[in-house]
Design a binder for these strands. Structure first.
Lengths: 194, 194
DNA sequence: ACCGTTAGATACATGTCCGTATCTTAAGGC
DNA sequence: GCCTTAAGATACGGACATGTATCTAACGGT
């Protein structure tokens, strides 16, 4: 029989990645050390080194696990405005830690590796898949709520870009007022200029 | 007579702060160590400790010295579009290093101190002074190029928010195309929806 | 039940930074 | 020229992280 006190293989791996994520959230990239992660995971450094020789390998694996983990639900309420507000709210709830982290904590990593946030995001997002706001706009067009014209991705994803900026500036979740203002004062007026 | 090989007082202090700035730019907050800064300044750690007991004291002093430096010129060409594009270009040239740094490298510092980027910026910007884009819009209204209606600061400063986001995402200066697209596809259409 | 694999503990040498203490010597005021 | 001040060099113990090596014991497959 097995005492099941010792994890192996995939089970151990996800435990480590979860611990690494927790450390990253709490202590940032600076605190993201093999030492701290191994302690947090209840294992020892050699176990980590066997899987990820470089610290950055472990970092990417950690991000990859939590990026694909929870897709942000895109609401489908039948109203463009409600969809947009609901989606931003979901983004806020689901990605606060991630966004704060990625947008900001990791700049040291980007410097060191010569990449940037956009490249990392693009490499993890399956190509050809529409963004949340693209989906929302498509549906609104299908309902006849919006004119069927070509729109720049810059316009479509505007709320997301503004969200990221706001998060960076405040280091906090955004407020409900900020969300409605973004949709009502900025995005919807812009979408209707056709 | 004096050999002047040994700096003292204010002269030494600014030399240290300049060295600290250089280190911060090159190596980020992680590399912002007393050791590295002292070496860069050609002095020794005890000299730094006598002035700034904590690392953050030195950081704030370093930022303060380089923050107030240069106001960004706001062009006045007689065209809303040209003003906006020119201003964004000036922002890009003048603040790339600073923005990248402040917006991003310093998140560890913000975490530690419980402040955020917006508070730091507001504390250093004189209150009541209109932003660059507010000035640009005011002039356009005065010329009759824009309707004289109340506009949300969110709308007015939109290009700046997008600029900050773009800078963060790419860690590079923005492209000329990005600037014109931001103004022509996003900002100007939004301003004209009245 | 055996055996190959591998988790996990421990140890080691190395390197970097910390914070402080000590000592010298150059600078500047009088 | 003397004397106070402070720069700058050096040393120290400690903390923490690195990367590797070695050993044991638990696990999983057959």
């Amino acid at each position: 029989m097995s005492l099941n006190t010792r994890r192996r293989g995939a089970e151990l791996e996800v435990a480590i990645l979860d611990a690494a994520w927790a450390v990253l959230i709490e202590s940032g990239y600076t605190g993201f050390t093999f030492e701290a992660i191994a302690a947090r995971a209840g294992t020892s450094r050699p176990v980590l080194y066997r899987r990820w020789p470089q610290r950055d390998d472990l970092l990417v694996a950690t991000l990859r696990r939590h990026w694909a983990a929870k897709p942000i639900p895109v609401p489908d309420t039948g109203s463009l405005r409600d969809d947009a507000i609901g989606f931003l709210r979901n983004v806020d709830q689901g990605r606060t830690g991630l966004m704060t982290l990625i947008s900001a904590q990791l700049v040291e990593y980007f410097r060191a590796t010569g990449t940037n946030f956009r490249e990392l995001r693009d490499s993890m997002r399956p190509p050809g898949q529409p963004t949340g706001f693209a989906t929302i706009v498509q549906r609104a067009v299908a309902r006849g709520e919006l004119a069927d014209v070509v729109r720049s991705p810059r316009v479509i994803d505007l709320p997301f870009d503004l969200f990221r900026n706001e998060m960076l500036m405040t280091m906090r979740p955004v407020t409900a007022d900020w969300i409605t203002e973004t949709i009502d004062v900025v995005w919807l007026p812009l979408l209707h200029t056709t």
